[in-house]
Write a protein that binds this DNA or RNA. Structure first.
Lengths: 337, 337
DNA sequence: GTGAAAGCGCTAACAA
DNA sequence: TTGTTAGCGCTTTCAC
């Protein structure tokens, strides 16, 4: 293993000079820098991470806590994770992967051991048990997701409330008056992850302003359940012509059942989805949708974190504005026969 | 920050004693151990990762390289990654997440800096450019996936060839004689990731033994493309009654088009899928399938790696035997009318 | 069974 | 612009 001392010797300079060439923390004459860099390449030198961490009190590692639960939104989580990893690399950081499993203990372990300089937490719950720890530690952190109380923490999230509003606005502009929302499984609402409620709230209040009627139904899974759900919706509100779906796995069942019932999309009913871009594009009808900006969330989280690590203060919540892409699943409301 | 020295002072012992209590590398009297452990808890001590890495030349970190490409098999990758992370934790290791992006450079960086003690590589190509580096370094590594040349490397993978064979055997037992394979996109075959070809090879040679006829068609995506593909298949082999699908995203299009054509599953045609369990269960028809044993692959990889780190020699390839689960999509071949 | 002390490879004062 | 040097917190020999 090549050490800094060996590089110094090879280049005929002192160890600190090599260190400063590497860090750029003081000016080095062109000649010296040149020689040192040559030696570094010649010997194939890589600074030892442990020694560096010990001496500088910085590991250049960011911990990323992702939920263990792999049953929901997996591709989105993955996209966020890779965006986090690549963005982190551009700032010289590596990513330590923590699964939710360890829970608050992982936070303690990482902050206590100096394994990572900072952390990013995904899958934040409204009343997340990791928050007190984060508030208590020096360690900078950024949440992807919005807890109920954002005091003393930095968050990034899609503006779910605006997302709900945007969906209903789109339907309103097309002349739809009766809207049904196919939501997540009841468990999601109970778990208080927040995003589902927020979407619904934003949607409902905008609908009220626009004079639309809204019916919300969670959905548990299964084609049969979807058939039942739809029947109930049309029984209760026969003039329903607009659907908002916030549940990736509900997309195909919904389209299939509508088709089976002889309701054409978008001629008879319009569907707006809140789902990953890929799902919207690959569905049997290309869906008008609001996508979760996974890349942007990941990138943003890292940049806020790097800002904090560099001493910039950035508490508070950053909400990303939703964007609705019109595709083939929404159109003008049918004129009453 | 609490240091080992502070713990030693608090407990009235020397630093080395505390260290040995922690590592268990020499016997400690019950009383001393007790006092030290009490002090550790009282002060909330966590060993400093950097110092430990520097002194012991071990970071207790395993690097995991996952593909950046998030367009395929994402949930499976994620499941492997979390299995790797949780298994690693049980052995005292953390996971450093590397995206494929950096390619071979990442390997150099990690091995050179001592950031990680070992690495796990996913998405291995037949002629992977990272292999020469792995063979050249001391650093233990395990591949998830099988390259063309497995000399000097350790691999874990599903036995894809046996998987293909298993699918066709199942159909043969049910009396099907003409089988069509809906495969991955052509790009997948061109990229030489191996698994697709291997599945096909296994399937074909078993089919030959059993006297079945096989038609293979890659599939690019889209419902229309599927309709075209199926028409061609039935034109060429009107008596096709068995389908093997190796492409998660082809599952619903296939089922939808079959339905539209009035072919009932499993009465008229049987479908066997090679796909994640979740897809098989949630499809509009519960699919008879062979699942990628993601958990097992991840767990296995870590255990092989830990074995190597502990000095056990374990080169070569470990192939996991496929398991076929019979569900609602396969049944006896229809008797000719 | 326990302690003293010498590094591990690097960073960052301090000095020139 | 460069060198000297004192640690960073831990592990591990060597000594008792």
């Amino acid at each position: 293993m090549v050490t800094l001392a060996e590089v110094a010797q090879h280049a005929g300079v002192s160890a600190s000079t090599v260190s400063y060439v590497l860090s750029g923390k003081r000016s080095i004459s062109a000649g010296t820098r040149e020689r040192v860099e040559r030696s570094i390449r010649a010997l194939g030198y890589h600074p030892n991470a442990g020694a560096r961490a010990l001496a500088s009190n910085r590991s250049n590692i960011i911990a990323l806590m992702i939920p263990l639960r792999t049953d929901m939104y997996v591709p989105v989580m993955m996209e966020i994770a890779t965006a986090v990893a690549t963005t982190a690399r551009t700032h010289g950081y590596d990513i330590l992967l923590l699964t939710g499993e360890e829970g608050p203990d992982a936070v303690r372990r990482v902050t206590g051991s100096g394994l990572a300089d900072a952390m990013i937490l995904m899958d934040v719950e409204l009343d997340d048990e990791r928050l007190p720890l984060l508030r208590a530690t020096e360690q900078p952190s950024v949440l992807i997701g919005l807890p109920a109380d954002t005091a003393g923490v930095t968050c990034v999230d899609l503006d779910w409330s605006a997302t709900g509003a945007l969906c209903v606005e789109h339907l309103a502009e097309l002349g739809h008056r009766d809207v049904a929302v196919i939501g997540e499984a009841p468990a999601v609402y109970e778990r208080h992850t927040g995003f589902a409620e927020r979407t619904l709230d934003g949607l409902r209040s905008r609908a009220r302003e626009l004079g639309l009627k809204v019916l919300h139904r969670p959905w548990e899974g299964g084609y049969d359940a979807m058939a039942v759900t739809l029947s109930r919706i049309f029984d209760e509100r026969p003039r329903t012509t607009g659907f908002v779906v916030q549940n990736e796995s509900a997309v195909e069942p919904l389209l299939a059942v509508l088709r089976r019932q002889g309701r054409a999309v978008p001629e008879d009913v319009s569907v707006v989805a809140v789902c990953p871009e890929q799902v919207a594009v690959q569905a049997s009808v290309r869906l008008t949708s609001v996508a979760v900006p996974a890349q942007e969330l990941g990138r943003h989280a890292v940049e806020l974190l790097v800002g904090k690590l560099d001493g910039r203060e950035t508490d508070g919540a950053v909400l990303i504005a939703p964007e609705l892409t019109v595709r083939a699943s929404s159109g003008p409301a049918p004129t009453a026969p």
